[in-house]
């Protein structure tokens, strides 16, 4: 599920509010019929995992250590990994296909590799919801598609809801099940096809420079 909109419309704000990283400005956020604020931190961590744009603080962790940190909501007070934790970590690594990277340190990785590692960490956290803030920024087109394809397969096969913000509207249209268009006065939610038919993408950007072509599902420069 993609959140799209122009710069500054509040995509990241929305995502961070849903992830309980910042106070809500207004309204109520509920998760499974319960207010987000009523969850204990540990309970919430078993429901929602995050992949953020901010760099991780210590790049000296190995890939394996970093992914295993995703098991923290389930480990004891000292963070000891049980057999189940190790299995889940392994599964996450296999899913994202980074077996060859697992003993490398994070500073040795490229941006695309690191992004996959962070996704594996969120997978290891084993939550029904994964929130991602611009998972494809800094990546070239090939790796963008690679990441989004990966997210698609995770969402479908592992039955998870993945919500991410993106500027790759054209790619998102082809890959996402649902999209949320954030607008100044009104926001629209639906499948990419519905949104195209209802001409909602036309109103996404100011129309003086670019125009949405409903037939190809892409933007054209005027």
């Amino acid at each position: 599920m993609a959140i799209v909109g122009v710069n500054g419309i509040g995509k990241s704000t929305l995502l961070r509010t849903l992830g309980n990283l910042q106070q809500k400005i207004d309204g109520v956020v509920t998760l499974e019929n319960k207010k987000l604020s009523e969850y204990s931190p540990t309970k919430l961590a078993t429901k929602i995992s995050l992949v953020l744009t901010e760099p991780i603080a210590s790049k000296n962790l190995t890939v394996l250590e970093l992914i295993a940190l995703g098991r923290q909501p389930y480990t004891n007070w000292l963070g000891t990994l049980t057999e189940e934790d190790k299995i889940k970590t392994k599964e996450a690594i296999t899913w994202v296909e980074i077996e060859d990277l697992q003993h490398k340190k994070c500073f040795e990785l490229s941006d695309g590799q690191l992004q996959r590692v962070m996704i594996a960490r969120a997978l290891a956290q084993d939550t029904p919801f994964i929130l991602m803030d611009e998972p494809t920024s800094h990546l070239d087109l090939y790796h963008k598609v690679q990441i989004l394809k990966l997210l698609q397969s995770i969402a479908h096969k592992a039955k998870k809801t993945i919500l991410f913000t993106t500027h790759e509207i054209e790619v998102a249209i082809q890959i996402c099940d649902k999209m949320l268009i954030l607008g100044k006065n009104q926001s629209y939610f639906g499948t990419p096809c519905e949104l195209i038919q209802a001409h909602h993408f036309e109103k996404l950007f100011p129309t003086d420079m670019i125009q949405f072509d409903a037939n190809t599902g892409s933007f054209k420069i005027k």
Binding site: N20, P41, A45, T46, I56, A57, L61, L69
Partner: peptide, 24 residues
């Protein structure tokens, strides 16, 4: 400090990630 070992490890990822891992 021993009681803080787990949060300390989570903090290696940064505060936001630590919070998302269930650290108060």
């Amino acid at each position: 400090s021993v009681l803080s070992i787990k949060p300390l490890n989570a903090l290696l990822l940064g505060e936001n990630y630590a919070q998302s891992l269930g650290i108060a």
